[in-house]
């Protein structure tokens, strides 16, 4: 098991290197002239050239990337050209916001999938099963941003039940924190939750037909024990695979939701930085997102090993 963990973690290094260099090179290809933006609305070519020189933008790409990497491995992600704020501070300030959105969305995804999946599996072909399948098709078809806007109109603008935008930190008010995240969380989790429910329902129906379940029933175990203690554990492997893939999407999905709900998280920072080719914050966020996604994937692989010892190779 330790070997598996070490192997997975080691694989993260080349992935991070490839992703960081590709991103750096792509930003370099962008037509945005960061020096012109920084020099102001009425800058002369001489002013722009001066700013370029100050930022070392005339150095070759490998030199600039090498400089960034050397600083990054020492934990220094640089400063934003525009806000002058250290990238590490900005990420520290904004990451909790995205983690909050992702956590609420993940909780809604898992709880929704469990609830609908288990109900569908217990009464296959019944009304609940058909509802789950129908909802799944509906939410896969509806884009998350459209659903979010619809919910804002119905729940915030017309009925004033929940806020239309913004974010409140959990330390300021846990209740307001939750209120502000309910619509964004639901908008992100709707598709994932119903898709997972369908997957879980299939796996669970398969598991519930196995001999060990028949034995458990013959022993007189309660349905709750059979489902949650025995069948669900075996049915979980394909669901965890899907959840692992979705976990990354939840973080990326929160980027879109941030725009809709005017939440100033990593997504807004990423878009702002990309718009003006502010390379340091952009690289910082890419690094964090890559780290989260690769760590999630590693965790999924490790979970496979935990659930199925045959996979510990």
């Amino acid at each position: 098991m330790l070997k598996l963990i070490a192997k997975r973690l080691l694989w993260m290094l080349p992935i991070m290197l490839v992703v960081s260099f590709s991103t750096y090179a792509l930003v370099d290809l962008s037509p945005t002239n960061v020096a012109a933006v920084l020099a102001g609305d009425q800058a002369t070519p001489a002013n722009i050239a001066r700013v370029r020189a100050e930022l070392h933008l005339d150095d070759p790409l490998p030199v600039r990337y090498g400089r960034w990497l050397a600083h990054a491995v020492h934990g220094d992600l640089g400063k934003s050209y525009f806000t002058n704020q250290p990238v590490k501070d900005a990420i520290t300030q904004k990451l909790p916001i995205n983690l909050s959105i992702a956590a609420v969305a993940l909780a809604m995804t898992v709880l929704g999938a469990l609830f609908l999946g288990v109900l569908g599996a217990l009464w296959p072909g019944g009304a609940v099963d058909r509802t789950v399948t129908g909802l799944s098709s509906l939410f896969i078809a509806i884009p998350g941003f459209w659903l979010a806007m619809l919910l804002v109109l119905q729940l915030a603008v017309y009925r004033r039940l929940l806020p239309a935008l913004g974010y409140v930190g959990i330390s300021s008010s846990p209740w307001q924190w939750l209120r502000h995240l309910l619509i964004p969380g639901f908008a992100i989790s709707a598709t994932a939750s119903t898709a997972l429910a369908v997957q879980l329902k299939g796996s669970l129906i398969d598991a519930l037909g196995r001999d060990y379940v028949l034995t458990a029933r013959a022993k007189g175990l309660a349905t709750r024990t059979i489902v949650f203690k025995h069948a669900l554990r075996n049915a979980a492997i394909p669901v965890i695979t899907l959840l692992g893939l979705r976990a990354g999407a939840l973080l990326v999905g929160s980027v879109v939701v941030e725009q809709i709900f005017s939440i100033s998280g990593l997504g807004s920072m990423l878009i702002n930085s990309a718009n003006v080719a502010d390379i340091n914050p952009l690289m910082g966020i890419v690094l964090v997102v890559t780290l989260v996604v690769t760590l999630t994937n590693a965790a999924v692989d490790i979970a496979y090993g935990y659930l199925n010892p045959k996979l510990r190779v």
Partner: peptide, 19 residues
């Protein structure tokens, strides 16, 4: 003073009482 990306969001936020 808060940055809200689109005008439609700003209209909605005033109507919902968030701004």
């Amino acid at each position: 003073w808060q940055f809200v990306a689109t005008s439609l969001q700003r209209i909605n936020a005033v109507r919902s009482g968030d701004l």
